[in-house]
Computed example of a mutant assay.
Amino acid sequence: MSEDVRLYIVTDDPARACLAVIGCHITELPPIFRIVTGPEEIAAIPNGARCIGHWFSWKVRRPSRAQMVWEELRARAGDRRPIGLDDKFFQLIDEWNAKRRKAESERLASIVAEYVTDNSQGGAPAENPQKQRWF
């Protein structure tokens, strides 16, 4: 695991947890966040790392191996226990999302302005791979 990771998200559904915790799609997740799902990955979370568990199918009667490892990790004593999250950390995530959305909005506005300018000059817009749709 990298020392550059600021938050580990332990989950059984990476895409949903990414949206719920970070507020972005998993394809947009920066490398300072790491989503872990398997027991080996969970067990490898460094001592004292900041992490959050976000489970969608918590099985009480028959927990999965990943759930058991997560519970063991949370039960560790002293400096080996993971660090939890506080409001300040979530505020940093919200600030990051606001900056990201602003940059995306500005970029989209410049693409639209370029497209409108190209169309107003009577010709088809120049081929621009940034304008292509990704469906």
Score class of each variant (00 low, 15 high):
Ser120Tyr: 06
Ala75Tyr: 03
Pro31Lys: 15
Ile45Ser: 01
Gly53Gln: 03
Lys88Asn: 09
Ile93Tyr: 06
Ala77Asp: 10
Gly122Met: 08
Thr11Trp: 01
Ser105Gly: 07
Asp87Lys: 11
Glu72Val: 03
Ile9Ser: 00
Leu29Ser: 03
Glu3His: 13
Met68Cys: 11
Arg76Gln: 15
Glu106Cys: 08
Glu41Gly: 05
Gly48Ala: 02
Met1Arg: 10
Ile32Met: 15
Phe56Asp: 07
Gly84Trp: 08
Ala126Glu: 12
Ala66Phe: 05
Cys24Ile: 12
Ser57Gln: 10
Ala66Ser: 12
Arg107Glu: 15
Ala113Cys: 08
Ala66Lys: 00
Trp134Ser: 13
Ser105Arg: 15
Ala126Arg: 11
Ile52Ala: 11
Val36Lys: 01
Tyr115Gln: 05
Arg16Asn: 07
Gln67His: 12
Trp70Leu: 02
Phe135Gln: 08
Ile35Phe: 01
Glu28Gln: 13
Asn47Leu: 03
Ala15Gly: 04
Lys59Trp: 04
Glu127Leu: 13
Glu3Phe: 04
Cys24Arg: 13
Ala66Pro: 00
Trp55Cys: 02
Arg65Trp: 11
Pro46Thr: 02
Pro30Gly: 01
Thr37Lys: 00
Arg50Lys: 03
Glu40Met: 14
Ala66Tyr: 00
Met1Pro: 13
Ile9Asn: 04
Glu106Asn: 13
His54Ile: 05
Phe33Tyr: 15
Asp94Leu: 04
Glu106Leu: 09
Ile26Gln: 08
Val21Tyr: 03
Glu114Trp: 04
Gly84Ile: 08
Ile35Asp: 00
Val69Tyr: 00
Val69Trp: 00
Gly53Ala: 13
Asp118His: 07
Ala44Trp: 03
Pro14Met: 07
Asp13Met: 07
Val10Trp: 03
Thr27Ala: 12
Ala109Arg: 15
Gly123Ala: 12
Pro39Glu: 06
Ile26Asp: 05
Thr117Val: 09
Ile35Trp: 00
Arg74Trp: 10
Ala98Ile: 07
Asn119Met: 15
Gly123Arg: 10
Ile35Leu: 11
Tyr8Ala: 06
Ala77Phe: 14
Arg80Gln: 13
Ile42Asp: 01
Val60Glu: 14
Gly53Glu: 02
